Simulated assay, not measured.
Amino acid sequence: MTTHHIAQRVMVLYTGGTIGMQASANGLAPASGFEARMGEFLASQPQLQVPQWRFREMSPLIDSANMTPAYWLRLRAAIVEAIEQDGCDSVLVLHGTDTLAYSAAAMCFQLLGLPAPVVFTGSMLPAGVPDSDAWENISGALTALAQGQPHGVQLYFHGALLAPTRCAKVRSFGRNPFMALNRNGGAAKAETLPVALNYNQPRREACVGVLPLVPGINAAQLDAMLSSGIQALVLECFGSGTGPSDNPAFLASLQQAQKDGIVVVAITQCHEGGVELDVYEAGSRLRGAGVLSGGGMTREAVFGKLHALLGADLPLAEVRRLIELDLCSELA
């Protein structure tokens, strides 16, 4: 049974994003000073039942289009510090919406075993502008934490809590940009996790590429990606996991990637469903070339998962094994 933890001391980590942006000569830009604005708003809403909160401004503040895996490691460290050193029992991350689903999914894998709830939120319009969703998302997320949430990472937006490993940003407008995707589940749960994946173990940055298949894609394009220094490649396949199986050079490049120790994982380009590499010959040939099945994983989930597995310095065989097992509901 899942235990719900009622938040009493929340650390608010502000990374930037639209929620706190102010007008600049070149358009909206991340701005400091959001703690005072947030405090002023919450003080004006005495009816809200929100926990005590502290505020930490990450540096630098960024538009989330500039988010990187290196920043993820700093964010991970800040979340762990809030729980283990600052006396907080939960964390609220304020983040721009463009890459929020990526960051929240990545933190699911980066914070395995963290004994605290972590919630990500943001807004589509800056706080203070007409019809902004900023304050409703912040107050809603804080209220949700006060009511009790399970340990682990969730995404809060427009009155709903979503599992980050199962959702994506599907709209660039309106109050409801995120949606839970109907993806295939049913993968076996990893019975035990390597100690190296625990939230309090060291991590280093990894390098992961993503390549969507399109009609006529050739081995030269694949080779350019494989030779770019990546440790893993997410191959976004057609349908249930098909690709150009009648192209010997393309398959040979995938086989060479396996020999070179590059982990290649197939996911579907479709919004719903997932990869089943053994249904069509065009998929089974990818499997024969060493491509792993990403099942129903979203791009955000598999990208974050690969970063966590590779960044934990696990043996290659262990990375390949764990990719196809469920770690935190990404394949459930």
Score class of each variant (00 low, 15 high):
residue 10 V to F: 09
residue 10 V to H: 08
residue 10 V to I: 09
residue 12 V to F: 05
residue 13 L to C: 10
residue 15 T to K: 05
residue 15 T to Q: 07
residue 16 G to W: 09
residue 17 G to P: 10
residue 17 G to T: 06
residue 18 T to E: 08
residue 22 Q to E: 14
residue 23 A to D: 05
residue 25 A to L: 10
residue 30 P to R: 08
residue 32 S to Y: 08
residue 33 G to L: 14
residue 34 F to C: 13
residue 36 A to N: 06
residue 38 M to D: 05
residue 44 S to M: 05
residue 45 Q to V: 14
residue 47 Q to K: 14
residue 49 Q to D: 13
residue 50 V to W: 06
residue 54 R to D: 11
residue 60 P to F: 14
residue 67 M to G: 01
residue 70 A to R: 12
residue 71 Y to E: 04
residue 77 A to N: 13
residue 77 A to C: 06
residue 78 A to V: 02
residue 80 V to A: 12
residue 81 E to V: 00
residue 82 A to Y: 02
residue 83 I to S: 02
residue 83 I to A: 03
residue 85 Q to Y: 02
residue 95 H to F: 13
residue 96 G to E: 01
residue 96 G to P: 01
residue 97 T to L: 07
residue 98 D to R: 01
residue 100 L to G: 04
residue 101 A to Q: 04
residue 103 S to V: 04
residue 105 A to H: 10
residue 110 Q to F: 13
residue 111 L to N: 02
residue 113 G to N: 12
residue 116 A to D: 10
residue 120 F to N: 06
residue 120 F to K: 05
residue 121 T to H: 03
residue 128 G to Q: 15
residue 130 P to C: 04
residue 135 W to T: 02
residue 135 W to V: 00
residue 139 S to N: 03
residue 140 G to F: 07
residue 141 A to G: 14
residue 145 L to A: 09
residue 149 Q to V: 01
residue 149 Q to N: 08
residue 149 Q to Y: 03
residue 152 G to N: 10
residue 152 G to R: 10
residue 158 H to W: 14
residue 161 L to R: 12
residue 164 P to V: 14
residue 168 A to E: 15
residue 170 V to M: 07
residue 172 S to C: 07
residue 180 A to N: 07
residue 181 L to Y: 04
residue 182 N to Y: 09
residue 193 L to T: 06
residue 194 P to T: 06
residue 196 A to E: 15
residue 198 N to W: 15
residue 203 R to L: 03
residue 204 R to C: 11
residue 206 A to W: 07
residue 208 V to C: 06
residue 213 L to W: 08
residue 214 V to E: 11
residue 218 N to L: 01
residue 219 A to I: 02
residue 223 D to E: 12
residue 224 A to E: 12
residue 226 L to F: 11
residue 226 L to Q: 05
residue 228 S to T: 06
residue 231 Q to W: 02
residue 233 L to C: 09
residue 250 F to H: 03
residue 253 S to F: 00
residue 261 G to Q: 07
residue 261 G to P: 08
residue 262 I to K: 13
residue 268 T to K: 03
residue 268 T to P: 03
residue 272 E to I: 04
residue 277 L to H: 07
residue 288 G to I: 13
residue 290 G to T: 15
residue 302 V to S: 09
residue 302 V to I: 15
residue 306 L to W: 10
residue 312 A to Y: 00
residue 314 L to E: 11
residue 314 L to I: 11
residue 315 P to A: 08
residue 315 P to E: 06
residue 315 P to R: 01
residue 317 A to F: 01
residue 321 R to Y: 00
residue 325 L to T: 01
residue 326 D to S: 15
residue 327 L to Q: 08
residue 329 S to T: 12
